[in-house]
Design a protein around this nucleic acid. Structure first.
Lengths: 340, 340
DNA sequence: TTGAAAGCGCTAACAT
DNA sequence: ATGTTAGCGCTTTCAA
């Protein structure tokens, strides 16, 4: 009952195992009547190919590796779901592999992973998409891979990205159109280049509106709530404090709001706050946070799709793909008050 | 360079492949000097056993399946991390399998998973730990499995649980000792029995303190932020509204706080709010949320450990394991104000 | 369009 | 303590 091998199916259908293999793998050159016989036998015996055997004989595993080192549970889960959705539809499985992008042995770790599990391809998410030790290993081992939101060496493999800078630009513009002129910015972790590049959008919007970039208004954050709090402490204690703060992610924006609350600063009347990512906290916090939503699941699906196409030998005619983020207007932003 | 099989190692070491196998699998009955020779050859060739071959020959995959259907990204990630930590230490990999506990075909899905991937064991998390269709399949297929926080048929397999009811009891007691008498309760999703059983702790504390259970103060929630908002709308519009609300998870507690803010009710001066889970939102929200922290990662590690022991044929002398949750005191709870 | 035979790289059962 | 011999269940040549 727990068995039923290709031999059983072949015997029942009265064909050779090679024919069964052809049918199961949807190969061409099988007469329709033969195909039907085989499928009937497959159904009758409830046959499932043994993946280990297939993997050993075919020299591939039908498993993709998903590498990540992202402290945001929501981001990781969204990526996983996207990857899994596409993989399941194509009969692939996923091996998740969280790791530490600062580990000096990260290259060896990835080598191990590839050699041991014989995964067929790898999906890299930020910030790993920009870790050169990993890219090096992947290139050398000639294993197909894709990257989500890389910022470096984009010619290395297919990739999927979003218009981060553009969305940040839109958000900043929106704040400016609400009358804000002194807009603080809490930048992202320098290792997360995609996040840190959101700063470019902020800068571009200022330039376009002829607002001088004030260095005092730009504070380095590290993507965490706590770093947002620290940044807010700096910004809100400035002699001329900003009327709006745009944080490069929601966690930091939440930190900003926490400090504002503690200082008795009313949001959005005295201070507008904007974030980026649309994590759950963004709508659970009070007041709810104006932010930017990224199509994380869609990006992951697209990336997986690109990878699978590569594996099937199809030339990827669209080696790069751009998906759009969108602005989510909530209650934490409003018109600038009278100058203070 | 991408190869190096057991034959190569055997040849280089001047032994048979069986001896190499013994060394690699840490089997006994190998002379130390032989072992050293083999290990040297392994190192020299940078040999890694092919898992597919091992799996096929040994009739096991060295892969565990992790099944879940939990909307909380943080919970899932914590479980994954716990499982992975223990698995890696023992040379196992993990296949993640999110699914829908209400899917009528869930049983067939699990059967497929087992038959196809030949995973060696399964870890079940809530609410799947209580889905009888799954338990049925698992029992029939005789695949080893463990459950995290099951509430039903605890004799079915080893399991790990926490003292949910006790922690809820402590939290309620704490509120009572702060002077609260009318304490609202937002209960959890009925399918998540572990969550919904937190109500028992609440009830027990009331009984012990001779406070009558007022049905109006207990509102059914569904674990989501939105259901917390709805519950709060009910509770806070009561003619005699509660001075404290204990929600069975943090998301719902956040919903309660949102409504309180919108109604201009000051927390904790006019209303104390408590949650459960200590998700990130708990400390990012304002005021920060008093809650209960569960040792999710530790539970997952323990569960995986129990499963691996089972797989190695060791009698699990401790088929059930209880880990303790702890109360986290923050700013959302305070003394009851004057009667209103 | 179909089939026969030869492995893939390992473990298991049985020698020695 | 070590080696020999069969497979595990599939895919891949290569024939037919």
């Amino acid at each position: 009952m727990t068995k039923a091998t290709i031999d059983n199916v072949a015997a029942l259908a009265g064909v050779s195992i090679k024919t069964v293999s052809r049918v199961v793998n949807k190969e061409p050159n099988v007469r329709q009547s033969t195909r039907d016989k085989v499928l009937k036998a497959v159904a009758e015996l409830d046959y499932r190919p043994n993946l280990s055997a297939r993997s050993l004989a075919g020299n591939r595993s039908y498993v993709l590796g998903l590498l990540y080192d992202n402290p945001s549970a929501n981001y990781v889960i969204d990526v996983q779901d996207g990857v899994l959705t596409t993989c399941r539809a194509q009969g692939y499985d996923v091996l998740i592999h969280p790791c530490n992008h600062q580990d000096p042995d990260i290259g060896k770790e990835v080598t191990n992973l590839i050699r041991q599990t014989r995964i067929d391809g790898i999906i890299l998410t930020p910030p790993l998409s920009d870790v050169s030790a990993i890219l090096e290993v992947l290139k050398d081992s000639r294993i197909p891979f894709v990257r989500i939101a890389p910022t470096l060496q984009k010619d290395l493999c297919p990739y999927v990205e979003t218009n981060d800078a553009e969305a940040a630009y839109d958000m900043t513009n929106q704040l400016i159109s609400l009358g804000h002129r002194r807009i603080g910015f809490v930048s992202g972790h320098p290792d997360h280049r995609a996040v840190s590049h959101r700063f470019e959008g902020y800068r571009a919007a200022l330039v376009e509106n002829h607002i001088e970039l004030d260095d005092d208004l730009v504070v380095q954050g590290y993507n965490s709530f706590e770093s947002g709090e620290e940044a807010a402490n700096t910004l809100l204690n400035l002699s001329a404090r900003p009327s709006a703060i745009f944080a490069a992610n929601d966690d930091m924006a939440a930190g900003v709001m926490m400090v504002a609350h503690q200082m008795g600063i009313d949001i959005p009347r005295e201070l507008s706050v904007a974030g980026y990512d649309d994590t759950p906290v963004a709508h659970q916090i009070w007041p709810s946070l104006t932010t930017v939503r990224q199509p994380i699941q869609a990006m992951a699906q697209k990336a997986t799709d690109l990878l699978l196409k590569q594996l099937m030998g199809k030339e990827v005619q669209l080696p790069a793909s751009m998906l759009s983020s969108s602005l989510i207007q909530r209650d934490s932003t409003g018109p600038a008050g009278p100058a203070r």
